[in-house]
């Protein structure tokens, strides 16, 4: 019996050391990517290519889900607010929840599953088929040539996608509450404008989405670069990217919200 307890404790210790070790490797890899990203700015067309794959191809899902999230927020908000006779505040509700929270967070979750998984799978498969090793043989640095452009493309496209998501949501809420239900158009916009502050709400939401962009793409490129060079390894790495980045987004969101919106009415 004591033997089993000891082995269990040893197991816990082993896992802790393993995860700390992995975190260290990930941080060092992140620094390496930052150090070697000079190439991606000198040859910016590499980043543009990746912007197409991570940004433009994510547009459809971001636009559609932003629209629907806004529509649902408008509908549910109207149902609740009309009980208190203040259905004209529905614009405020939709805009504040989108700009502060849902825009950056849901866009980042969608981005992690749409673009993050694709980045991991691509880099992992490049590693499995020894394309990265071949680049190294030709004195082309795979981190500078393959990893850094993908990282920067993700960092650039994430805030833009979050902004598009929020705008689509605001217009989705407008569509449902003003056009379908018949809330006054003037009060929808004016109450929203008097409640949403540029610096506190919009700028902080933008900063949030920048953080999420860095976190998601850093995790995605690391998992891809670190994936075991087998079919199983690549599939495991892709799953880990989505799970880890979703958890990191939610945790980071809580921390950032606590710093940004504490004491704000």
């Amino acid at each position: 019996m004591p033997k089993r307890i000891v082995s269990n404790i040893r197991n816990i210790g082993h896992r802790t050391i393993e995860s700390v070790w992995r975190l260290g490797i990930a941080s060092r890899f992140f620094l390496l990517v930052l150090l070697k990203s000079g190439t991606s700015f000198r040859r910016f067309n590499l980043v543009i290519r990746e912007l197409y794959f991570t940004g433009v191809l994510s547009l459809i899902i971001i636009v559609v889900s932003g629209l629907f999230v806004g529509m649902v927020l408008g509908l549910q908000g109207y149902e609740t607010l009309q009980k208190y006779g203040s259905e004209s505040a529905v614009g405020t509700l939709v805009a504040l929840s989108l700009v502060r929270e849902l825009g950056p967070v849901v866009a980042a979750l969608l981005f992690a599953s749409r673009a993050g998984s694709a980045i991991t799978a691509e880099i992992g498969l490049m590693k499995a088929t020894e394309q990265l090793a071949a680049m190294g043989m030709m004195a082309v640095d795979p981190v500078a040539r393959v990893v850094a452009p993908r990282f920067w493309a993700g960092v650039i496209s994430m805030p833009l996608l979050a902004a598009i998501f929020s705008v689509m949501g605001v217009y989705g809420g407008y569509l449902v509450t003003v056009v379908f239900i018949g809330v006054d158009e003037g009060s929808y916009w004016s109450q929203m404008q008097s409640a949403v502050d540029f610096r506190i709400d919009i700028l902080n939401g933008f900063i949030k989405s920048c953080f999420f962009g860095v976190a998601v793409t850093a995790i995605a490129v690391f998992e891809g670069y670190d994936a075991p060079p087998t079919a199983e390894g690549v599939s495991g790495a892709t799953t880990r990217t989505v799970v880890t980045s979703s958890l990191v987004i939610l945790g980071l969101d809580f921390i950032l919200t606590a710093f940004m919106f504490r004491g704000v009415s």
Binding site: P159, S166, V167, I202, F206
Partner: peptide, 10 residues
Amino acid sequence: ALMILSLKVG
């Protein structure tokens, strides 16, 4: 989208 957010929503 960012401009709409800051001018129309904010």
